[in-house]
Nucleic acid binder design. Structure first.
Lengths: 208, 208
DNA sequence: TCCATACTTCGATGATAGACGAAATGATTT
DNA sequence: AAATCATTTCGTCTATCATCGAAGTATGGA
């Protein structure tokens, strides 16, 4: 259930139960433990309870556990189509990850939109202009409580992708533009034809 | 026991049992599970069995779990003298962490010895010269299988310190120079008088 | 008003984890 | 050779976990 929540989408108890292949009663018991353990939050909306990871640190911890879990334990995932698409591109809590995510991070850096200093990313003047043209209100993004840009280690690529407030804003905007589509029931994504053009034109990225 | 192993020092079953306040029988059972789960390795030396974390990824995962564990669970540690010294300076598997570790990372960056790009650190020409003068054979360090520089998120400072092959080489050299002393039974370190001078002279760091 | 749906609570069951005493194994010291 | 020490193996006990059926409580729709 925690892995399922990694993409940041709030999910209901029943959805999570189906994903974990357990009954709603069992899921309910586990979820309430996770809530009281401060790993996830519960939001009541009508008869639905939406659960989500409490913060990106939890996502990070889960990813780092996946990264060290032995191949045999994830073999069912590793061998599956599902994992193939996860490696290509996926969302990580609330930003892009996988090959697409790390390549995008690299492109943003190569184009001089972001630069890194002491392990942190900073937006350049050049980048400020780019993101604004791209339809992201940087001033607004900066106002958010969380870290502006967070380098998030990717478990499949073993190199960082862009997390933090900017990563979330970027994912939102890319989704809004129709460049990617989320797949049902997991956190893999599909790049649309529109998206392939966009990634190439804006970031010099060739997506297969 | 895993937390105790975080400093990278190999430890015997009995030491780990004492640290965890369990009997050697119990420790043995847990350790063998950790070995077969590929989290730690066992090295036989006479009648002693030395255990250590299998690789830095495991250390990283443990640190990220500590980072999200609720304060109430670490309160006994948080309130203790032990934790105070851990916060000041400690080793994280095989490199420096804590306040000293993060400040050193910042200093290396400020002095232009390392620069960061897309969330990764790179050594500058300036840095190459510095580390060579400092007594570290960079060519040799680069040959090692692991990542050259790995930004490792620090649980107490919430900002990165220098991990990877260079982080390990740096800790080795600093230990060799007698700048720090490891404390018995935990991974806290003490900066020697020699070290205070050295950190100030070489990195502009004031250590208290 | 009645029923379906989403979720939780309660209670029971079987499996397992964590712990340790006792005893065995192997290495080191005396 | 005997004693000591580090560790493991075995057996056993207790507590806890994960699970689900049954029943209960909201919510939303017909």
């Amino acid at each position: 259930m925690l892995i399922s929540l990694l993409d940041g989408r709030p999910q209901t108890a029943t959805e999570l139960a189906r994903h974990a292949q357990i009954t709603p009663q069992t899921a309910s018991a586990h979820l309430s433990k996770l809530v009281s353990g401060n790993l996830i939050t519960k939001e009541v909306q009508g008869r639905y309870r939406y659960f989500r990871l409490i913060n990106p640190n939890v996502a990070h911890a889960i990813e780092s556990l996946i990264a060290i879990s032995s191949p045999s334990q994830v073999r069912s995932l590793r061998d599956s189509d599902e994992e193939q698409s996860l490696r290509k591109g996926r969302t990580c809590y609330d930003h892009l990850a996988g090959k697409l995510g790390t390549e995008l991070a690299k492109a943003l850096h190569d184009k001089g939109y972001i630069e890194s200093s002491a392990g942190d990313y900073n937006l350049t003047d050049h980048g400020l202009k780019f993101f604004t043209d791209f339809g992201i209100d940087i001033a607004k993004v900066r106002l958010r409580r969380r870290k502006f840009i967070h380098p998030c280690l990717d478990w499949s690529e073993r190199t960082p992708h862009i997390g933090g407030a900017l990563g979330a804003a970027l994912l939102d905007r890319i989704t809004e533009l129709g460049w990617i589509e989320k797949r049902p029931f997991n956190r893999a994504i599909r790049v649309t034809a529109e998206g392939k053009k966009g990634f190439h034109k804006n970031f010099n990225l060739l997506v297969d």
